[in-house]
Design a protein around this nucleic acid. Structure first.
Lengths: 225, 225
DNA sequence: TGAATAGTGTCTTTCAGACAATATGCC
DNA sequence: GGCATATTGTCTGAAAGACACTATTCA
């Protein structure tokens, strides 16, 4: 009885998937990309997109591949969230999933349904459907992480275009934290970290005073203080 | 060609291990339990103890089993750290490891060498040997997490017996952060969170003024502020 | 000129950090 | 009494939070 070369034990081994929560801001709401399952189990239920890890790719590569297939996006903010491995989390057998979350700027984004998905859609996190597997728990954990991280880092930048108004940045905070923020204190604090710089551009699109456009000095996420 | 029932894809799948960093405080130093590898690869090198995840156990259960086998300990503080899945991290093949870290009170602890380990020992994090695989990276990540978490939570409690002097608690902070802490500011701050309470016991062991013994009001880890 | 958003400063309160003297028990 | 650690409070500076008016452009 021949074992595959990659088999390291005589025991059955769990399978490993990578699930990716893709977040963006649309219509002044935080949205997450979900797919409608086309096959059992949980056929017809909405779920977090994911797939099996290939033998030759890293976990992060698998997550990026998933985002590429699902939303056609490259080069987005991506961070490992947590690994979920309860033996009963998937009725098909032992499947461990390494969850990642990604943040993409709030612009026009098309979602493609993958092979075994009937449909893909953005859902506001305020109007979530019932999710398959333990995906509600995974999503809750991602939201906790995001809300925590925005307080002490520049992750919000990943949800904005390169240039933005300070009021845009403030709105991202308000949407993610779910509460109003004082404009003066917010600006004072953000500018005090010296991570933002003005650009030579001004936004004159609205019927009101134009706004200075800013950008983050560094593309990589920075920490406050 | 028959597939095992648990095989969900036609592809080879990575193996999954759980590695556990067990920390304690001994001789006024932060120590980590390592095992000396008895087999190739990296035979003779020190490594973080770990093992394959069994089909019927959760990741956390696997980690607890590992701690039980390695150090004979139950019921310790345990938290998932990160999942490492670089395809080249193990020369034997594709092995993904879910890393956990555990904290045990600084008392008498015996380490048992497991099956494929020649030896097990505590190492001060200031005198670490060269480690096998990517274990140096994993250890560095655990230290980062621990140093960060002690600043805003009661994790330090997991490194102390149930009752302790405030100076013991302060020492834990100094050892983990690697710097001195001001006694008055430390006590003021700790007590201000209202997470500690005095016990009816007093430590009169030394040739000096006896100290009040405290305990944390809750056994579970709490967050400051 | 009215509507809409941009942009700005002060005061108060809270928290972190620097800093030193007295208290108590053992030997 | 000497040694060793326990215990305690004040001052200062920095940051957070409350709070309201003027500026600018467009329709």
């Amino acid at each position: 009885m021949a074992k595959a070369k990659t088999q390291l034990t005589d025991y059955d081994q769990p399978s490993v998937t990578v699930d990716v929560l893709v977040f963006t801001i649309l219509e002044d709401q935080l949205k997450v990309a979900l797919i409608k399952r086309g096959v059992a189990p949980y056929q017809g239920r909405w779920a977090i997109p994911g797939g099996f890890v290939q033998m030759e790719e890293s976990l992060e590569d698998a997550a990026r591949r998933e985002i590429q297939e699902e939303a056609g996006l490259n080069n987005v903010f991506l961070e490992q969230l947590y690994t979920f491995g309860d033996p009963k989390r998937d009725p098909r057998g032992r499947i461990i999933t390494v969850a990642y979350y990604a943040l993409v700027p709030g612009e026009k984004l098309t979602l493609a349904a993958s092979t075994d998905a009937a449909e893909a859609r953005w859902f506001s996190i305020n109007e979530l459907p019932k999710l398959a597997f333990d995906h509600a728990k995974i999503l809750a954990e991602a939201l906790r992480r995001l809300r925590s991280k925005i307080e002490y880092s520049t992750v919000a930048s990943a949800l904005l275009p390169e240039q933005f108004r300070l009021s845009d940045l403030q709105k991202v905070y308000e949407i993610i934290l779910g509460e109003d923020v004082d404009k003066r204190n917010f600006r004072k604090r953000m500018l005090s970290f010296d991570l933002l710089e003005t650009t030579s551009h001004i936004d004159s699109s609205g019927p009101h005073r134009p706004a200075q456009l800013y950008r983050f000095k560094q593309k990589e996420i920075q920490f406050f203080k």
